[in-house]
Design a protein around this nucleic acid. Sequence first.
DNA 1: CATCAAGCCTGGGTATTCGC
DNA 2: GCGAATACCCAGGCTTGATG
Length: 210
Amino acid sequence: MRLTERDELILREVDRWRACGSKHIRWLANFSGQRATDRRLKILIEAGYLKRKKFLYGVPSIYFLTAKGKSLIQVGTGTEKVKIEQIVHDRTVLDTAIYFMHKENLSLNDITTEKQLHQSDGFGIRRHRADFIFTKDEQTNCVEVELTRKANNRLLNIIKDNFMEYDTQIWVVPDYQTAILNVLNNSQRYYTNIEILSLQKITDYMQSLK
DNA sequence: CATCAAGCCTGGGTATTCGC
DNA sequence: GCGAATACCCAGGCTTGATG
């Protein structure tokens, strides 16, 4: 097989997100359909650049780079462990990223993932990072996908940090997570850059794509 | 050197199977 | 029955090699 530019793009995307599925790759790499995407991914797997792993029933497979794939795009060989309980969250983050790419007309370069942010922080610095950030019209915005509740003071600290650091902080939360929504609503009185987005908007949009 | 046919690869659409 | 994965078939593009 012959590698194309798009193939390398796929490898780079798979590398920088934590739980990339074929549905996401379809949109990130601008394939014309799911069929074409899956077939190309299979070729990349057979050529030894990617591997596909199934973790949970009901959740589609996730793609990862093999050692060969990593060396092709020259990224570190370290293997990070996958946290099962985070796969659903990480896939939702990708849904959200695609949503914003389309709504805000972003290119891949406008987006920086949590993994990339941590990498630029340097080794050993473990501070919180948003799920991804994107820049548009000179403004830097961060996106937090919050599916499950975490301790209030942690949440408040994150909100404060995001207020200092970003022009807008966008929180994607399911409608039923009223506890999180309450904290966010209260915080809006002190921090003016908070936007709340219903998870439903994202899932509806992904449904409508096809 | 120009051209044309054959072969191969890739992608599109749709049908079919698979696993729940 | 449903969504994901695979199979099948056809079209277009590129490469190669033979021919004039």
